[in-house]
Design a protein around this nucleic acid. Structure first.
Lengths: 187, 187
DNA sequence: CCTCATGGCTATTGACGTTAGCCATATTGG
DNA sequence: CCAATATGGCTAACGTCAATAGCCATGAGG
């Protein structure tokens, strides 16, 4: 190859993730990323089609990491109901550890930033398996959607500071997942 | 007052809401709003401190309308569990009727766009009353948070088209609210 | 009638994404 | 060993957008 490359696509994505985590998603400017990898902003377009596409790569990278955590939580449980609870708690742990990247990955995204469909399938697989084991395959999808909707809604509220009306947040999460798990098990 | 006013703050907010609904929140530029009310963009700053502040007014306006719908749904039910279901369904109806404004109002917001705390209290009051009637005042807050988290999470997913994996969405919503209502009633 | 507070306007700035076009270089094929 | 070429980086520039500065016109109140 001509002209030695001063950076790489993975380095660009890693820089983008770091910037998102440090300064929020609105701090993710092409200039900031370029400066971080030691290059000028226009050069980034040799690696990435647009800013939205870069956001999409951040989302995919984050989602990949998250999926590993969810699968680990699933493996660590010996019983379906416990797996459901463990997966939910792993999701919250991840969200609190990487709040900005989590918010970007699971928040509203422009079409050009949406991750590959296949990645969404693999990241939702653990929940689907767990609910399937609890309620049976017929209702598994609806049950998984219920749990996922609750968890992402809860975490969106927690991360955006919507829980300003007193009460501890951790116990409220436990309350919710226990309620859902019991309700599903009762079917 | 000097120099007859060519527009008013309510007109500006109404224009902003219409633009959000027609072209999405990213279409809400100061130029677009100004053109719609028959004024030049800089003149808007005589009425509104910033774009974020204008978004905040759109949010408050939307939330006010939503609250009326939730209260109407609450009044229309004669039993606590039915009230909970009716409120959830009213929320979904509103979200589907005004998807873009709903998404703005209940999505992540910069600090300068956050609605007044008091408004959040009044808009969450119906759910809180309903859960209180179902599970008692001790668990009412946690229960309300669970239902709210689920509903907003579900609608965020539905509006962003995250339900691409087959299955009808409406029945999934019914499944979820029934599951939650039953679970709360069983306590 | 004169004053002045006020709303609107033009011009401008600064940030940002993105494109155009040039230059330098390392690899490849003769 | 050398030239051709493909490629990565750069500077310059454009368009969009939010926001500010400063001027002008107007109309209500003394």
């Amino acid at each position: 190859m001509p002209t030695p490359e001063r950076t790489t696509l993975p380095a660009v994505v890693a820089a983008a993730r770091a910037i998102v985590e440090e300064h929020g998603s609105e701090g993710l400017t092409m200039q900031a990323v370029a400066q971080r990898v030691g290059v000028r902003a226009p050069s980034l377009y040799k690696r990435v089609a647009s800013r939205d596409a870069l956001v999409g790569l951040v989302v995919e990278s984050t989602l990949t990491d998250l999926t590993l955590e969810l699968e680990a939580a699933e493996r660590g449980a010996d019983e379906p109901r416990a797996a459901l609870v463990a997966i939910a708690q792993a999701l919250r742990t991840f969200a609190l550890a990487h709040p900005a990247c989590y918010a970007v990955a699971l928040g509203p995204l422009p079409a050009a930033s949406r991750p590959a469909h296949e990645l969404l399938v693999t990241s939702s697989a653990p929940v689907l398996r767990a609910t399937s084991a609890v309620v049976g395959s017929a209702d598994a999808l609806a049950a998984a959607r219920t749990v996922t909707a609750w968890a992402t809604g809860f975490l969106a509220m927690e991360l955006s500071g919507a829980f300003r009306l007193g009460g501890e947040v951790g116990p409220a999460f436990d309350y919710g997942i226990a309620l859902l798990a019991d309700a599903l098990a009762a079917r």
